[in-house]
Structure formats: C-alpha cells, structure tokens
C-alpha cells in the first residue's frame, strides 16, 4: 500500500510563533495523477509546499517520498530526489538569460541538456527570447519560464503554486495542456490555483485546507457540494 504512494504526508504541523500554519495535516498522493490544493488565502497552501520541499522545517509529523523520509533533508537534496516546484511569487534568476535560467539547473551540461532547454523554451514560446535577461521578460513570461525551469530537472512530483496567475489567455491554454501532458509522461502534479474553473477542470482529486487543517478531500464534484468547503469559502 505505502510503496504505491509517491508522497505521504503524516500529521504535519508547522507553527509560526502563535500562528499554526499547518495543523496535523495528512495527505496521500498516488503516482501519475493531478491533484488540486485549494483553500482561502492564508490557509497554509504555500507553507505545505515549503514543508514538502524543505524550505521550511516541520514542527511535527513526517513526509515520505516514494516511501522514504525526506523531512529533515536539505532543499537541494529533495529537489534532486525528484520533487520540483514553482513559487507563488516568482523566483527566477533575473540577471541570467532565459536560456541560462534553465541551463543553470540542468543535471548535465552537454548538447543534450541545451537541446532540451531550447525545446522547453520553444514549448512556452520563449525561444526567441532565449538571450534576454529573465528580469526583462513580462510577468506572464517569467511564470512560464519558471514552469519550464522545473521541467528541466525532470522531477517525478511537481508542485505548482498558482502557475496560471498573470498568464495571458492564449498561453494559459497551452499551460493547462502542458500540465495535462505531464500526467501522460508519468508525473504527479499538485496545483494550487485560485481560479476554481481551472483547478476543477484539471484535477482528479482535490484537497481543501482551512486554517492549516485539511477539511475535505475528494473528486471535484464532491468538493463543490461539500458543506464545510462551501462554508470555508463563503461562510464568513
């Protein structure tokens, strides 16, 4: 049972001073699926990503990736094991070019890595801007660049923190197509997204956080009608 899970979060708790950002949270992710993670602002979605990727240290609980404990590992170790992520507030390398932003994290440096980087840039229509400093790209382009930067690491589990925010309509469809494509390639995706239409359309299963607690999980149709969820979003 356990071994068939790609990620298992158990009773995870994280406090910031008096605020409990994540409270006894447990999740189980199966491989080759797209999951949605939703919840009101400040409900702990980004913190959960930070805990999984090692950027924040948990107070209690454990995180297992493919059966092995990863809480306590350094962020780069977790990344190299196969968990990639994007950031809600873009974190590209502004004074590196678009192409360099990908090459710098590639696992190898040969012609193959370069070809793959160019392929990824072409895929998000940034190939003509490959020599441009990333800091000069538009907001949406930077988001797409950050998305491709995750892919060049070829992670098995990809955590996307609001990838669609600020991306224009035409590119958005390409982006959503790309995310669905990741599943075909055997990857697992967790997506945090505010646009309910987007996240409901994409995810096979949703987790709902409220005040750091998981208050519901299930397929999109069930979540839409879940009382606690409706209350968390609209009841106050």
């Amino acid at each position: 049972m356990r071994d068939s899970l790609i990620l298992e979060v158990k009773d995870l708790t994280k406090r910031f001073g008096g605020v409990t950002a994540i409270s006894r949270c447990s999740l189980a992710l199966e491989p080759r699926r797209i999951y949605g993670l939703i919840g009101p602002n400040g409900s702990g979605k980004t913190t959960l990503f930070n805990l999984i990727t090692g950027l924040e240290h948990r107070d209690e609980g454990e995180v297992r990736f493919k059966g092995e404990r990863i809480d306590g590992l350094k962020p780069h170790q977790i990344a190299l094991r196969g968990i990639g992520r994007t950031f809600q507030i873009i974190r590209i390398f502004p004074e590196l070019t678009a192409l360099e932003n990908l090459l710098v994290v590639a696992r190898s440096t040969g012609g193959a890595a370069r070809r793959r980087a160019l392929e990824l840039l072409a895929f998000v229509k940034l190939d003509r801007l490959k020599g441009e400093y990333a800091g000069n790209l538009s907001y949406g382009q930077q988001k797409l660049l950050e998305f491709t930067r995750v892919l060049i690491l070829d992670p098995e589990l990809i955590l996307l923190d609001e990838p669609a925010a600020g991306v224009n309509r035409t590119l958005l469809n390409d982006l959503l197509e790309a995310i669905r494509g990741l599943k075909e390639q055997g990857k697992t995706v967790v997506i945090v997204e505010h646009d309910m239409k987007v996240v409901m359309g994409l995810s096979e299963k949703l987790f709902v956080l409220d005040y750091g607690e998981k208050i519901a999980e299930g397929p999109p149709e069930a979540i839409q009608n879940d009382e606690r969820v409706v209350e968390a979003y609209f009841g106050r």
Binding site: P75, H76, V104
Partner: peptide, 9 residues
C-alpha cells in the same frame, strides 16, 4: 532560495 530549491547545493 530558488537555486537551492532547484537542486543546487
């Protein structure tokens, strides 16, 4: 932080 999260030691 981004470098670290992208697997750079």
């Amino acid at each position: 932080i981004a470098a670290e999260a992208m697997g750079i030691n």
